[in-house]
Design a protein around this nucleic acid. Structure first.
Lengths: 232, 232
DNA sequence: TCTGTAATTTCGGATAGACGAAATTCCTTA
DNA sequence: TAAGGAATTTCGTCTATCCGAAATTACAGA
């Protein structure tokens, strides 16, 4: 585990619109993997035209929420990062609450939280978190930022890159695609599951893996949605 | 109690924007008292300029959600009524859930629900309703429409007009103003409270009333926020 | 170094929603 | 019935967000 990171709080920041929160969250997400978020990557994630992203990125940069080097991509500033983590916390607390308390199926919670996260007040989110015992992870295994922006940013290897012959534990699964999530659920590929990669066919071929006791073959796309860590 | 009213379901209606839902809800609300919702009444309730309301009302009329006689006011069509009741159900289920399950103070639930009602899916609302045992009234005593648009529309007399010398039961209190709600709470003027009007000073003067066992004087503005029915 | 392709930005334009000022209509009252 | 005030609508504008088409830039490979 790497250090949890702490971001100082500069401004309380005026209320952001829903689209702005979505951009910041997407940039944060992309920056977990790449150094900067490119226009195309953002456009794809947000399902918008690249032209729209260009315009918004310029505006957000002028508001000090991110830095933008034309043709190079966007990087969150400290203020942007705080705003992104605030939205991420809302999202993941909501996912946890909906799944745990209200029994919303785990492949549906993402879409629902995606809308509610822009409307719920901070104090409501804190109430939900409290009711859940202030969880550190959401139902898909993603870490939940605290109220003051502390979050575990460990970058886990995906199942697609996990070394052959090695055992590991599923840390998290991507929550973006309900169909994929349903498939992973059927395979018992949930956070906490033990896996053991037996073989991987070359050229993006299927991966031969035991999940708990069951032996399975899974394709590279699904494997990329599953993040693994060495057994605890 | 008057007949619950039933509205047939014409169209599933495309998804409405948050402002549109707000307009429909406000018009429904105003129509509970007046025959048609005037531009000024809407502007005041929605805290918008009358010019803005004029424009929106015209648009909503062209979409078939309401009928508009220029200079005369707006009336919901069947389709508009259904949409309004759907939003009202969301609002009141959310209020109930937040207050009952999450312990949000009863004077805060309105504002929170006001934002969440546009984001929560129907199935989530139904889950919440189910968790509460499908309540018929929200924490302020307002009736909750069912999934298929049945709602009690009895028009209750307010405390300001309740006959002197008569006992009654508080049916509901207006949830719009948190400060007022806090005041009413301090007076124990909640749904279910027994009241007995002893005297009313003329010209909008104070009302002399017993609430439960306590004797109080309350002003006409607060009294207008409290709706009363003959004792059950 | 030159060049073609992919990524990005710019430009003009669209839509939803809101506003103030000015024009219009309604209705009461003299 | 004429006038004046109040309510309403119209008009021109503004902001936020989105788009397609055209122009620009970056960069890999010859």
């Amino acid at each position: 585990m790497s250090e949890p990171s702490r971001t100082p709080s500069p401004t309380p920041a005026a209320t952001l619109t829903a689209p702005v929160e979505d951009y910041l969250k997407a940039i944060y997400d992309i920056q977990q993997t790449s150094d900067a978020a490119t226009t195309n990557a953002l456009a794809e994630r947000l399902e918008l035209a690249p032209a729209s992203v260009s315009g918004m990125v310029r505006r957000l940069a002028s508001q000090g929420l991110l830095e933008h080097e034309p043709y190079r991509g966007a990087r969150l500033t400290a203020a942007g990062r705080i705003a992104a983590l605030r939205t991420l916390r809302r999202h993941r607390i909501l996912e946890s609450y909906l799944a745990t308390v209200l029994g919303v199926p785990w492949d549906d919670v993402h879409a629902e939280a995606e809308r509610l996260e822009h409307a719920a007040s901070d104090t409501l989110i804190d109430r939900m978190a409290h009711a859940l015992g202030d969880p550190l992870f959401d139902p898909h295994g993603a870490p939940i930022p605290t109220r003051d922006g502390v979050v575990d940013e460990t970058r886990h290897v995906t199942l697609a890159d996990w070394p052959v012959g090695t055992r590991g534990t599923v840390m998290s699964v991507s929550d973006k695609d309900p169909v994929m999530l349903r498939y992973l659920g059927e395979l018992e590929l949930r956070p906490g599951a033990m896996i053991h990669v037996l073989a991987r066919a070359p050229y993006d071929g299927p991966i031969d893996v035991t999940i708990g006791d069951a032996r399975r073959q899974i394709g590279p796309t699904a494997a990329r949605a599953v993040r693994i860590a060495r057994q605890a």
